[in-house]
Design a protein around this nucleic acid. Structure first.
Lengths: 226, 226
DNA sequence: ACTTGACACGAACACCGTTCGTCTGGAACA
DNA sequence: TGTTCCAGACGAACGGTGTTCGTGTCAAGT
């Protein structure tokens, strides 16, 4: 643009863009995740939501993978961690794991990140692991048994959070279509080939999710000898 | 090339390329997976291994996702499924789940596919689900309880297969580096902040994997009331 | 002989994560 | 005040991905 004559009113400055920060990028990433799902979380999409270009993000996060890992850790930050009480450690374990599942299901797709990150080592992921171990130790388990139990409980919870998020993260018509395909395929075979699957298929819905999770916890904690 | 003079010996024909088929593409995909890991399994890489271009694969598999799902189903085909015996159904469940983990860990990275596919519905995945349900039913569980127990067992197994494959699918120096980072971070904080994590970190190795899996199964099956 | 359909597959498209080089502005220093 | 340095911003470009479209070939059917 050529130099304005001195009698021109200078245009208003456009609203200043927020200065980038890791926290802002992570928050924006979670925003995009919630609105559009995990597949939409690309460096380009997040940058676009911030009014900039993807290269700008790299001053604050090393890689795309680091970004999604930071997003997961942020989600875990919202979960309160209990102080261990030896008299009710089992119930405390349940509460902690329920809270984790709830937090992850509030962000459709974030559970999938837990399966993409090799070993989550964010501060909050570590605090969670420590908290779970503390509860198990408060229950009188040896170090080794506490470690192994924590492993199993964490795996199941993470798995369930992912399965559970299927009901919120994916287009329901796609799930219904897939369920129908399964039903048709199985029904096309001899009657007893998939008798149990056909008889139980209706039990796997969003409505039974909480009940199923508790059932799994009953199994895990019921089978945990002190 | 211009027309050869008649005294030229015609060149030997290059070895005929195999005619493409879905089975061949899946097999080749598993080959690439085993040699180079899951990240290397791209349409281009698989096509290259077949001496063709990526577009050729689409006559046989609809998408890249379908290819990896077929690969997973192929892996599950190699697992023998037991005929239920009511007197030893718990041990049969164990054997089935062990065999699944073994099969998946023979293909580094395939367990990750199980977490990428929304709901595995290949013929073998369905047969596995049916087999597990049959065992639980043989054990006298109601339809609902069998379904819920199968859900928990399958989730845990799949989760463990994935965790276990970490030790084979990923560069060990990267794991060691990450372990070190964790250790350093936790040691940099007040001494009791991560006391349990620091005390148990050494327990999570490839050498303890089988023991850990069994411990988890002990919990799940021990807590399963008939 | 001609037609049709299945398969093969190159070129191109849209998108991805990331790097490199350049510019800008603020802080520190003389 | 002027200069230097450094951190951050970010466009252009690179190498890679999954996929579609259009064209050619071959075998089977009429």
């Amino acid at each position: 643009m050529t130099q304005d004559p001195p009698w021109r009113t200078p245009p208003l400055k456009p609203a200043a863009k927020p200065r980038l920060s890791q926290e802002l990028i992570v928050r924006t990433g979670l925003d995009v995740l919630v609105r559009e799902g995990l597949d939409a979380v690309s460096m380009r999409r997040v940058a676009q939501a911030l009014g900039t270009g993807p290269a700008s993000l790299y001053a604050h996060v090393a890689t795309k993978d680091e970004l999604v890992e930071l997003m997961l850790d942020q989600v875990l930050e919202e979960v309160p961690l209990p102080a261990p009480d030896p008299d009710r450690w089992r119930e405390q374990v349940r509460e902690l794991l329920r809270a984790q599942v709830r937090a992850m299901q509030a962000y459709p797709g974030i559970a999938k990140v837990a399966w993409q990150v090799m070993i989550p080592v964010g501060p909050n992921a570590l605090r969670h692991a420590e908290a779970l171990l503390s509860l198990l130790r408060a229950g009188g388990l040896s170090l080794t048994r506490a470690a192994y139990a924590a492993d199993a409980l964490a795996l199941y919870t993470k798995a369930f959070a992912y399965e559970g998020s299927t009901w919120t993260a994916v287009d329901q018509t796609e799930i219904a279509a897939r369920g129908r395909q399964m039903g048709e395929y199985m029904s096309s075979l001899p009657p007893d080939a998939f008798a149990n699957m056909l008889a139980t298929g209706h039990l796997f819905t969003a409505e039974t999710a909480a009940e199923r999770f508790e059932f799994g916890l009953d199994m895990l904690l019921g089978g945990l000898r002190v």
